[in-house]
Design a protein around this nucleic acid. Structure first.
Length: 364
DNA sequence: AACTTTATCAACCGCCACGAT
DNA sequence: TATCGTGGCGGTTGATAAAGT
């Protein structure tokens, strides 16, 4: 076992993805959603293994990805979470909306690790270098004293980076608080920031505003079309409640991590009535998806497969010809426009999207 | 300008867990 | 129970860009 059968097949492309491949994969997933990855390459016409497709989607094409530098707040959060979780990048990434485990792992290995070491902190333990280490250092470099190291004050309980107050999230854009949520609701998807559109021609994710102006001038998506992906501002507090504390091996970790999120949860329960945003929770989402599943695509176990990070918003103002067309796969009634923002926050790229009869790249 | 070193990050590899048969 | 297929994860590699000499 171990090696996937698909990887054993010859003639499969490897290496960097071309814009054409990206487009094929993107179109396929937006049409059919995320199902069985092993069948994706064939269905999408790609000479890749399913695993490679999955990785490309998760790490690059997924529309909710946040691009750009890590903020100081994200950086601190990664350090805190790493102290609690170690190299469990997927779990760490789950707490940073729009960031992938790969991205965080790279950031840790290339930046944060060195940063901590410079501060005299052992990145593995998050504690100042041990006495043994210091002695060893003294042996080899007697002229250098350990006092020259800048060791930040760290309690015996853990690093000073630990955040136990939900205000951290509220103040740093890592959570969508009620006021910000209202702003979000009142704005069109195209006004949100950061917003990116993937441009298959350039191979870059373009800020949506740029893309908007571009599409206005060049009608990339058709005369009356605009197409935007946004990383939704955050998880909602219901997501916070979904933090799986059972995965932590020790109770301290569990309580620490839960303290990061539970305050918001309480706050949310007090203020949820004021929210204009209709929220679909996983169970509802599954029901919705199953009810709408007319394309013959299997969503078995979709409840479990919902990616809590997957927040997808599309504003699709389709041209008339586009709006009335139907899927080749058929059996789907079309709608002229669907507001995906109502599927917040636990929206997978689902059949709902498929049902929107939405193929942006027809118009490229 | 040419070459070397370092940093970054996308992608691959190999392993594990789990469900289906 | 054993085997197989698949999804998911973390470690690692290799290509490229940027910085340094």
């Amino acid at each position: 076992m171990g090696r996937h059968s698909c990887c054993l097949k010859q003639k499969l492309r490897k290496g960097l993805w071309s814009p054409e491949e990206d487009e094929k994969l993107f179109n396929h997933i937006t049409r059919f959603g995320v199902g069985c990855w092993s069948s994706v390459p064939k269905q999408a016409g790609l000479q890749r293994c399913g695993k490679s497709c999955r990785l490309r989607w998760i790490n690059y094409l997924r529309p909710d990805l946040k691009r750009g530098m890590f903020s100081q707040q994200e950086e601190d959060l990664i350090i805190s979470l790493h102290e609690l979780l170690g190299n469990r990048w997927a779990q760490i990434a789950a707490q940073l909306p729009g960031r992938t485990d790969n991205e965080i792992k790279n950031f840790w290995n290339s930046c944060l690790k060195k940063k901590l070491m410079k501060q005299g902190i052992d990145p593995a333990t998050h504690k100042p270098h041990t006495e043994a280490y210091v002695k060893e250092e003294n042996k080899t470099t007697e002229t250098i004293t350990t006092t020259s190291m800048q060791i930040p004050s760290i309690t015996s309980q853990g690093s000073s980076f630990l955040i136990s107050d939900s205000s951290y999230y509220e103040n740093n854009g890592l959570s969508l608080t009620e006021p910000s949520r209202e702003i979000f609701n009142s704005k069109s998807a195209l006004d949100l920031d950061p917003l990116f559109c993937y441009d298959f021609q350039s191979g870059y994710n373009l800020p949506i505003n740029n893309y908007q102006s571009q599409s206005q001038s060049q009608s990339q998506f058709g005369l009356n079309s605009s197409y935007g992906f946004t990383s939704m501002p955050s998880l909602t507090n219901s997501d916070h409640a979904n933090v799986s504390i059972t995965e932590f091996s020790d109770n301290n970790s569990a309580s620490k991590i839960s303290s990061l999120f539970m305050n918001d949860q309480v706050k949310e329960s007090n203020s949820s009535n004021s929210s204009n945003m209709s929220t679909i929770y996983p169970s509802q989402m599954t029901t919705t998806m199953m009810e709408n599943n007319n394309a013959g695509f299997s969503w078995e176990g979709s409840e479990n497969k919902l990616d809590p990070l997957f927040q997808f918003q599309v504003n699709a103002i389709k041209s008339e010809e586009f709006g009335t067309s139907s899927w080749e796969e058929g059996h789907i009634q079309t709608q002229n426009s669907i507001d995906f923002s109502s599927y917040h926050p636990l929206t997978s790229l689902s059949e709902d999207l498929t049902e929107a009869n939405f193929d942006a790249f027809h118009h490229i």
